[in-house]
Structures are given as C-alpha cells and as structure tokens.
C-alpha cells in the first residue's frame, strides 16, 4: 500500500473533498489503484480518461455510492469512510506488527538510526499490507478516537453533494415537481410550500415551468437532464458531481445541458465533471485530471494539460480525441 499520505489537518475551509490513498476492487478486478486528490471550493475539475479506466468509480467513491476498498474520503473536514490505518503513521506505530518488526530490525542491524528504522518498517508494512485485525488495545483505541472525532453519517453528507448521472435517473413514479421537492421536504430542509416555490423559480430559470406536473417519461433527454441538475440544486449543494451528463443525449440536446452547466460554473459552483466533451474542459475547467489504469496519471490547468501533455498515455489519448 503505497501512495498513502499522512493525515492532513482538515480544518482548511477551502478543501471540500479530499480523496486519500483510494483503492477500489470489484472482486478480482482492481479498478482504482491508489488515487489521492483534493477538490477545493470553487474549482471546476474535469476528469478525462479512456473507457473503463475508473473515472466513474472515482466520482462515485466521492459520495460513497461505491464503497472504497482502502483509503479515506473526507468532505468538509468530516470523514465518510472508516479510518484507514495505512494513512496514519502514528497509528501504524502503535501496532503490534510495527513494534515487533522494529525490534527485529534493531536487533539485526544495531547501527541503524531510530529514524531510518522507523521509515523502513513503515514502508514495509504499507507495501506488504501487514496490518492484521488485532494489533493491540492502543492501536484500536487510537482508530476509535479518530473515527469518533471525525466520522459523519453519509446521508447527511450527501445532502451537500449533488450528483448528476449519465442516464438522468429522474424518479419515474413522480412528477417533475415531485422529483424536485421529495428530498428537501422529506429531509425537513424546507416546507412543502418553500420547496415548491424554489422549484418553480428553478424551472423558470431553465424555461420549463410548464412541465411542473408532467411525468419524466414525457420529457426529452435534454429536458430530463436539465431537470436532474436543478433537482440537485434544490438541496443547495456545496459541490456537484457529473458523470458523463451528455453522453446519453442526442447531439442536438448536448448544447442545452452544457449551457446550464456553464451557467452553474459562472455562478461559482464547485464542480467535478467526468466527460468526453473536450471543448467544455478547455473552456470551463480550472484543472483537468487524466485517469488511466486506475491512477491519476497527469493533472494540470487546461492550457498546459492540452498544450503540453507529458504522460505518454495522455499524449496518445489526446491524439485520438483531438482530431
């Protein structure tokens, strides 16, 4: 387990999402192989990468629609996953395994400095996944303390993380109005009247106020996706995740959805967008990530990213999409 980082003090108000040492496997398939990144307030991050590279999985781990195999996800200073001991050197040092290996190393090599011994043992433990279930009371207590201090229920967190899906996922059994008001009303964030008023304002903004009482099956793809976006906005999220929001649309409807997304970006919304729309990335992104083979192979601001790519796989990828 390499690529872990020491615990970062999560007081920084600007840091909305922190992904630390994220691994994700589906059965035997390793999809994410150690991803760490941060999303800061106001950033517009675009994720690019070949099909099957793990882009959706990375995005879906950010709001825990997928459960990480290893690693931690933080949101606004709150921990969403269990504590991953491999990310905390001070916890590793409390483990029986560490103590045993440290003693052994010292005995074998009496001249080694304490500092070097510590480094070697920690590296060994992380690389070979040596921590076991029972590592002693101290170790357990420290993990518990951290968890108690930082953990927050995921349902609470998700209220602040909007998500837009490739296939819209509007609730088929509810009208447009029902779709928009269900969550804020059920979660007691708004009264029914407040929610309906806000929904109407948003519907007017996208010019679909006449669709208030229709069911999703009567809408076009572009209309569905724009309503899915404002359904997320009903929760007044701090960040919005988009997973290929235009991939399932007929070409003539892509523009209206990208247009709405640009408006959101201009309003200062923090956004993480998985897309194949290079134009959108160039115009809107403040940072572009290239995900390949379960890792972030390159990240940069768009000018450098597209103008001066360094990773050979990225060069190859760009030569195919920038025709």
């Amino acid at each position: 387990m390499s690529n872990g980082t020491e615990i970062i003090k999560n007081k920084d108000k600007d840091r909305l999402i922190a992904v630390k040492g994220l691994y994700k496997t589906f059965g035997k398939l390793e999809v994410l192989k150690g991803v760490s990144t941060e999303i800061k307030k106001g950033e517009k991050v675009v994720i690019l990468g070949p099909s099957g590279s793990g882009k959706s999985t990375l995005l879906r781990c950010m709001n825990l629609l997928e459960t990480p195999t290893y690693g931690e996800i933080w949101f606004e200073g709150k921990l969403l996953t269990p504590v991953d001991p491999y990310l905390h050197f001070d916890i590793i040092r409390l483990s029986k395994t560490y103590k045993k290996l440290y003693e052994e190393l010292k005995a074998r090599n009496p001249v080694i400095t304490d500092e070097d011994a510590d480094k070697t043992v920690i590296k060994d433990i992380k690389e070979h996944d040596l921590l076991r279930r029972s590592e002693g009371a101290e170790y357990k207590k420290e993990i518990k303390t951290l968890y108690k201090k930082y953990f927050q229920n995921v349902n609470l967190t998700r209220q602040k993380i909007g998500m837009v899906f490739q296939h819209f996922n509007l609730f088929n059994n509810l009208t447009v109005m029902g779709n928009m008001t269900l969550a804020p009303v059920q979660l007691k964030l708004k009264t029914k009247a407040e929610a309906e008023e806000k929904a109407l304002t948003l519907l007017k903004r996208i010019g679909l106020e006449d669709k208030e009482n229709v069911y999703p099956s009567t809408l076009s793809g572009g209309q569905k996706q724009r309503i899915a976006i404002i359904r997320s906005l009903m929760m007044e999220p701090d960040v919005m995740l988009f997973d290929e929001p235009t991939s399932a649309l007929d070409p003539e409807m892509v523009g209206e959805v990208l247009g709405l997304m640009k408006e959101l970006a201009d309003d200062g919304m923090t956004m993480v967008v998985v897309t194949h729309e290079i134009g959108f990335a160039k115009e809107v992104a403040s940072r572009v990530l290239f995900v390949d083979d379960g890792k972030i192979k390159e990240e940069n601001e768009p000018k450098e990213f597209f103008g001066n790519p360094k990773d050979p796989r990225l060069k190859d990828f760009l030569s195919k999409v920038l025709v």
């Binding site: 709001n63 629609l65 349902n155 609470l156 967190t157 998700r158 209220q159 993380i161 909007g162 998500m163 899906f165 296939h167 819209f168 996922n169 509007l170 609730f171 088929n172 269900l182 969550a183 059920q186 979660l187 899915a228 359904r231 997320s232 929760m235």
Partner: peptide
Amino acid sequence: VDKGQMEAGRSLGLSWTH
C-alpha cells in the same frame, strides 16, 4: 426497477429505506 432510481435517491441524502 433500474438501479439508478435507488442511486438518485441516495445521492440526494435520502436513506435506503426512504
């Protein structure tokens, strides 16, 4: 029922039961 329906509900902060 499409899995996306449950995911959409969960991503808005609604519980599994809800």
